[in-house]
Design a protein around this nucleic acid. Sequence first.
DNA 1: TAGAATCGCCAC
DNA 2: AAACGTGGCGATTCTA
Length: 592
Amino acid sequence: MNWQPYKLPYKLIESAAEIGPLVESLRGREVIGIDTETTGLDPYRSRLRLLQIATPEAVWIIDCFRLTRADLDPLRPLLAGPTPVKIGHNIKFDAKFIAHHLGIRLDGVADTYLASLLLSAGSETDRHGLDRVVARYLSLNLDKQAQRSDWSGELDQSQLDYAAADAAVLLPLWEEMRKRLEEADLLVTADLEFDCVRPLAAMELAGVHVDVGRWRALLATFQQRHDVVEAELQAALGAGVRQQGLFGTPEPINLDSPTQVREALSRIGIELEDTREWRLQKQKQVDDHPVISWLLEHRTLSHNLAAYGENILEMIHPVTGRLHPDFRQIGTPTGRMTCNSPSLQQIPHTTDYRSCFRAPEGRRLVIADYSQIEMRILADFSQDEALISAFDQGADLHRQTAAEMFDLPLNQVTQRQREYAKGLNYGLVYGMGAEGLASRLETGIVEAKGLIERYFQAYAGVARWLEAAGEEAVNVGRARTASGRLWIFRLDPIDPVQQAALRRVGKNGPIQGTASDIFKRAMRLLDEALDGLDAQIVNAIHDELVVETEESIAAEVERIVSRTMIAGAREFLTRVPVQVDVTIGEAWLKGR
DNA sequence: TAGAATCGCCAC
DNA sequence: AAACGTGGCGATTCTA
């Protein structure tokens, strides 16, 4: 069946006088559909052409080329306020154009794209474009062909029909999806997500500032060192190669090719299964051949130059002079966000790189992260008295853990015992086994098993919770976070390998997912608290927020960030104290 | 020859 | 199948 909502009357608004009747028609409504058509994808370089507003009776199409910003003022409270609820599909996109071109921070939204992601509960195969979602939930066929048409000129009938249809379908779609969310107990999570659209749109629009000169200088030193190391390696690895060419110069090997590197190593008597870092590290312990060290250094340098090099500078926006990454709000089944173009979530955590991300003149960065949030979630979930008490004592979790494990007073814990405890604290939330722990701590498998046993004796509640979570993943095939976010595991519980994986994600999923619930709640609370201040979230990395602010209010912003992040966590964690570490600085560096 | 698959490594 | 979860991304190599 073909959906023909353009049979609904649509009204083209081309003058300020027509805004009044529109506002009148929207008065008292609970939900409206919102869509925009733009001349491109970049809010800074493309224009907002149409703003469509759908009610059950009609679609209003505002031609933004014919109206001024001021003409739209009567719509401001409707778009920026909590009601009516604005339904959109990937409405962050529209929100960015509305913010930049109309100066209105769209809020009070519900998003059928995010809703679709939540209902799919981690499916990697489901697609979430409006046409696919309409097909899935309304069994209707929606024509998206006009989407990429030229929206900058005189509009034809088919374009207006398309614009109207896209907006009109949102109301019946939301009506259906809302029911599904309710049935699946996902309404709380959905609201949590919808509340994050405003902070995310603002964050992407703001972008981050990079010190280009500093970045280039860093790359130059890397390049120089890279060339030195490259020459050393060619000399060392070329030794066994048959001399080629007229002057007997050896053919250089491509050091970026794992195959060629492995063959070259073999020629000088080093046989390896592959050339991954961990294997090279292992080989280094057996035979500290200088080639291995060179190779390890070369890897880091060439990776840095390729992944965090000139390519990142090319992404600096010509209009703003800043980096504007794309965040996918629900990027993983656990609810974590992902980030690309560039991914600001994987900039190396070294001073040289991070110091290139600086606040502009007269401004400061406030950098805040949760301290061991996943361990705290585990403590709260498991209600383990010893782990909760470890957090209640404050201080050093790993030392506390070691003291519990080895039944020692805190001041008698050795460095090695602390390392063991740390390995366990980090590893067990991922469902690590004895083998993994053994190689991580460079001990034997028997010792590792003993350590795990001691750990679970000290934290018996944790052991029970993890066991039950793994068991439930196998038996039920799904898990939920504190907000109710659902992850349906698509793994076969019969297959031993997949069952082991199932147990691991069953343990880790709810913990990682609750951390993202908390983080998103904090983003929303912070966004609200910063309203009216010259301060803006500019980066978000799983448990860390970076806020750029005017220098003179940095201390105030620091307090606000700390307070709201703790408040976000408080909504989901009751028994465990939450700690947030905050720094004010000129660059993206932690600690004062 | 373009796109998929693989290797390898960065983040939390 | 590297041990241990979630991703992005670049270079090489494979394949339809």
